[in-house]
Amino acid sequence: MMEPGLNHILFVSILLFFIGVYGFFTRRNLITMLMSIELILNSVNLNFIAFNKYLWPGKMDGLFFSIFVIAKKSSID
């Protein structure tokens, strides 16, 4: 096992994204589809944060994008 870095976090978030996609395709119930969308959006947020942390540590744009995504999600619900 290696020290976790950017690639590890990206692996987790990509896996989570496609788990969400699988759930979205297979589920027939509206509530469970909503849950799958939840997973997809969260994997995207994790991606933003990972890029912000490792590629542009001097900026905070990724953090702001994640906050906006969370706010928008809560307004949609």
Binding site: L6, F18, G58
Partner: peptide, 23 residues
């Protein structure tokens, strides 16, 4: 579909060398 998408993306990510921030 999910597996193909996952494989495609992960290959892309692994091939792309990210330039780590130095700020």
């Amino acid at each position: 579909a999910a597996f193909c998408g996952f494989a495609l993306t992960i290959v892309q990510v692994l091939q792309h060398g990210f330039k780590m921030g130095t700020e």
